[in-house]
Simulated scan of single mutants.
Amino acid sequence: MRATPIYYYSSSSGLVRSFAERLGRPVHNLAEREHRLSEADGPWVLLTPSYKTGNDTNDTIPEGVRRFLRSETNRRRLVGVMGSGNRNFGRHYQMAAREVARRSGRPVLFEFELAGTPWDVEEARRIMERLDQALADRPTTG
């Protein structure tokens, strides 16, 4: 069974990278140009932080995520979104994950704060394992 990869964006703090790497599956950092310009080879999950950027539009989606989602193939193959946030951001908490999910029509699979707790990691692993199974059970078209 294929382990659904996670494409994530992590700033220099490394909090999201730390969470992604603890999930025990293929991960790709969209802060790195080679991943940002690539195309997913099958179903994938986005893990994005939300940043309260202070700009006029309150845009919280990292630019690396936006660039990756410019690809029609990547948008089509996206199957779900996870979010990292900081409750100190108030109404901006998890806004990036929720906005990508809303625009794409894909579900928010899981949300956690900052680098997440050990429980958050285990819960996200369980969610991803169920997703892997659901994707494996899908009828194929050919």
Results as ranks from 00 to 15, higher is better:
H92S: 14
G54H: 05
A20F: 02
E34D: 01
R126H: 11
S12F: 03
T53K: 02
A31I: 05
A97R: 04
R138T: 10
N88G: 15
R91N: 09
E39P: 03
R2W: 02
V100S: 12
V45L: 01
D59P: 00
P43D: 15
R103Y: 10
R77A: 12
P118V: 11
F68M: 06
E63I: 13
R70I: 01
A101H: 02
L69K: 11
E63V: 12
R75V: 03
F110Y: 15
T57P: 00
A20C: 13
M82H: 07
L131N: 11
V100P: 10
R75C: 01
L114T: 12
R126Q: 13
L37G: 01
A136M: 00
N29C: 02
L109T: 03
E122S: 13
A134W: 02
A96S: 14
V81F: 07
S104I: 08
T57M: 10
R66G: 15
A96I: 09
W119I: 12
N86V: 13
E99M: 11
I127S: 04
E32M: 09
R103F: 10
P62L: 02
G14T: 14
E113N: 07
D56H: 06
P139W: 01
R70N: 03
G142Q: 07
A40M: 07
F112T: 01
L109I: 04
Q133T: 14
A3G: 00
E123T: 15
S38G: 05
F89R: 11
S18G: 13
S10K: 00
N55D: 15
F89S: 15
S50L: 10
R22N: 15
I127N: 06
L47V: 10
A96T: 11
G80K: 07
R67N: 12
N86P: 13
G14W: 02
W119G: 11
D41A: 12
T4G: 00
L30W: 06
G90E: 14
E63F: 05
D137P: 00
E63S: 10
T57Y: 00
G83I: 04
E32D: 12
R87Q: 11
A136S: 12
G90Q: 08
F19S: 03
R77C: 08
G90N: 13
W119K: 15
S10Q: 05
T60Y: 02
P62C: 08
P5Y: 03
S38F: 07
R126S: 14
R2T: 07
L46A: 05
V100Q: 08
D137M: 13
E32A: 06
L46I: 03
G80A: 11
V108Q: 05
A31C: 04
M1E: 10
L37C: 01
Y7M: 02
N29H: 04
R75L: 04
D41S: 15
S38R: 05
R98P: 03
A3W: 00
A40L: 09
E122G: 14
G142A: 12
A3E: 09
P118H: 12
L114R: 07
R70G: 00
V45Q: 03
S71N: 05
E122D: 14
D120M: 10
R87P: 04
A96P: 09
P118G: 10
F68C: 01
L46C: 11
G64T: 08
L47F: 08
E111A: 04
V79A: 01
R103D: 03
E39V: 14
V45S: 02
R17H: 14
L15C: 06
T73K: 10
G80R: 07
I127D: 00
L109E: 07
R2L: 05
G64A: 04
G85L: 08
T48L: 04
